[in-house]
Amino acid sequence: MIGGAFGVTLANARTGDEAAFACIFHDVQPALLRYLRVITAEPEDVAGETWIQVVTGLRRFRGGEQDFRAWLFAIARNRAADAGRSRHRRPVVPLDMTEAAQHPTAADAADQALEAVSTQATMELIKSLPREQAEIIMLRVVAGLDAGDVAKIVGKTPGAVRVAAHRGLRRLAGQVEQAGVTL
């Protein structure tokens, strides 16, 4: 998070300051990619489309850093949905993906988490959750959005978001307990 300097940084980015835009990009892109890796199979492409839309709408955006992140992640979610629809229209399923789909994802992700404590392994563990819980956890924890913003993005009430996040976390904690490993 950029913090108090976000307003100035955003204003400079609006005027075409590339350094200011790079600052914003470096701050948001890791969380954006990690979020997109959970909800879409084409995270890099969707992230690129998201940034293009962010850049084009940068002059019209009004709000603080939290609003900016909520706006950006909402764009990313919509772009991911578009990419998913497009992928369904012309399905391309690699052979290795087909083979991987035949194995239970959760067990596989849990095994990976046991083997190595890494961001990637944790991402796989989160991906083993139901899609809604995984997405909400990523938006709450990785994107740093509060329950209200997440509720607007996913189209649910804040209470429903909170319940889904709690269920997802309990499930993750159960997997960690099952593995018998304290990470």
Partner: peptide
């Protein structure tokens, strides 16, 4: 452990 995992992701 869960808290550490999520801190690593974020």
């Amino acid at each position: 452990g869960l808290a550490r995992m999520l801190a690593a992701v974020a």
